[in-house]
């Protein structure tokens, strides 16, 4: 049986202590399988960002387990978590976070270089990733020579360069118009269709609908989930489709 790329087991995160303690997440369990894109929705303050930070090892759970590709984060030290983050997890943010003085290929290759890969090899792998995602034309462009949508697609390439197969996206379409946002989601969807696992935080239902399932958070608790998707055959058999 395939192991989940990301597993959260009864995860709780409490900020502060005593009277002022706030439970940002409370007993959340969630798994994301390879090839699956899961969207997290919920109102402001519901714990979406906390969930993403815990899933990416940027924050540690007060209790419960966070497991990335079989590695329990609580058993790794700070160094181990940092290494796991560099090698296994890619982040995509609302504001792209590309380095302005580097070309697209250099930006995409940067995580590999930070992990000790030689610059030439990192650049080669970066170009391969950009090619694979149909972004070859952008390789030598600097961020200010690209549109927002192009920058975000490059950011997704950066999140997935090398051996990383888990992408955590925090409102990746937040700064984009409707059509461009859709292009970005399509790229993310295609990567997941090819085996990458994705966790997408969004407040837009229309964007969450690109995921295989949607998990609702409210007050730090998972209150509902849409369940796994219907097959295309089922969809074609419904009354609202042909």
């Amino acid at each position: 049986m395939t192991a989940p790329s990301l597993l959260l087991e009864d995860v709780t995160r409490v900020h502060g202590t005593g009277e002022t303690a706030v439970r940002a997440l409370d007993g959340v369990s969630l798994e994301v399988m390879p090839g699956e894109l899961v969207a997290v929705m919920g109102p402001s303050g519901s714990g979406k960002s906390t969930l993403l930070n815990l899933a990416g090892g940027l924050d540690l759970a007060t209790s419960g387990r966070v497991v990335i590709e079989g590695e329990d984060l609580s058993t790794l030290g700070a160094k181990g978590i940092a290494q796991l983050r560099r090698r296994r997890v890619g982040f995509v943010f609302q504001d792209y976070n590309l380095i302005p003085s580097l070309t697209a290929a250099e930006n995409v290759g940067l995580p590999l270089e930070l992990d000790g890969v030689r610059a030439s090899q990192a650049r080669r792998q970066a170009r391969q990733t950009l090619d694979l995602m149909g972004l070859r034309d952008l390789s030598d462009r600097f961020p200010d020579q690209m549109s927002g949508g192009q920058q975000q697609r490059v950011a997704i390439a950066r999140a997935l360069v090398g051996s990383r197969r888990l992408v955590l996206a925090d409102e990746p379409t937040g700064a984009l118009d409707s059509h461009t946002g859709e292009d970005v989601l399509r790229v993310l969807r295609e990567r997941c269709d090819e085996g990458v696992a994705g966790l997408l935080v969004t407040h837009e239902a229309r964007h969450a609908a690109w995921a295989d399932r949607v998990v609702f958070l409210r007050d730090g608790v998972v209150v509902d989930s849409t369940g796994r998707a219907s097959s295309p055959e089922d969809l074609l058999a419904t009354g609202s489709s042909r």
Partner: peptide, 18 residues
Amino acid sequence: QRTATLKHLHDLTRLKQQ
């Protein structure tokens, strides 16, 4: 209702992708 509508939205989105 929200769960059901989101499920429907998801199904429509998959058809759109096709």
